[in-house]
Design a protein around this nucleic acid. Structure first.
Ligand SMILES: [Zn+2]
Ligand SMILES: [Zn+2]
Ligand SMILES: [Zn+2]
Ligand SMILES: [Zn+2]
Lengths: 137, 137
DNA sequence: TTTAAATTGTTATAATATTACGTATGTAAT
DNA sequence: ATTACATACGTAATATTATAACAATTTAAA
């Protein structure tokens, strides 16, 4: 269970609060709730919800994390080319979330948008599933 | 500005709270927030958030309304064949929401799901746009 | 008609998110 | 260096969204 931060150059431009929130999401890989993040980072000096929400807002804006709208949670971006588009599978039983990396799907959505002449700025696509683990049980 | 409830047979099986909430959403056509619904229906006898949320939950379950996840709002279903799938355009400027009725798009998403072997129970698709009205200004 | 399931009403509380205000810090032009 | 500007910070208060718990009642089956 080794954590592998990449801490690339761009991360250096983040502020302290932004960086510790990003690191937590990175280490977790799961969607986390704002107040859970707050609790987890009390020892790092985060004291108020606003500090968390401000960091989250900025990280979303930078495309480093995504908000999973229907879970009121935030998750590290697992992709390099999302812009602000998001596509997830969400298990209805256990809540497990995976960001879809499938370029086929991404291109499929883009095509749909073109074909239907939707003049969009971005999209959010949530597929609800029963994950393999939950299917067995 | 005439309201045109349909009040079909199935509506008769709704309870009073469910029906007045549904009627309000039907008349409005816009996404409404739970506490706005509560305020609006105080005179009809709704007193507590729970009464609203319970009615909303049931109506969502019945497929008569949808939750617009990223707006924490609820909107009348404008379609006959959604099951519990949802597809909206959401204006980023004014918040205007339209349910997509385009069968082409719906079928496109279904195809995407098949092609990518996604074993889904339902999906939620939110396209963020700048609506025509907002584009002008 | 007895039983089980669903719905109601009410109070309290939890969970999520923002406003408001003052301060500090970094950056770029003068 | 000084000013101006944008960004971020810290803190307290408050707003918004949603659920838990419990008792009573209605509805639909069996
Ligand atoms: Zn991503
Ligand atoms: Zn699962
Ligand atoms: Zn619908
Ligand atoms: Zn608009």
């Amino acid at each position: 269970m080794s954590s592998n931060h990449t801490h690339n150059k761009k991360d250096q431009t983040l502020t302290k609060n932004q960086r510790i929130v990003l690191n937590l999401l990175q280490d977790s890989g799961e969607p986390l709730k704002a107040y859970f993040i707050l609790d987890s980072l009390k020892k790092e000096g985060l004291n108020s919800p606003l500090q968390v929400y401000r960091a989250l807002d900025k990280l979303v804006e930078l495309g480093k994390i995504h908000k999973v709208e229907s879970l009121n949670s935030f998750i590290i971006c697992n992709n390099s080319n999302c812009a602000s588009n998001t596509a997830f599978t969400i298990c209805e039983r256990c809540g497990k979330v995976k960001e879809i990396k499938n370029n086929n799907l991404t291109e499929g959505v883009n095509e749909l948008v073109r074909e239907n002449k939707l003049n969009i700025t971005r999209y959010n696509l949530e597929f609800y599933v029963v994950c393999n683990t939950c299917k067995i049980n």
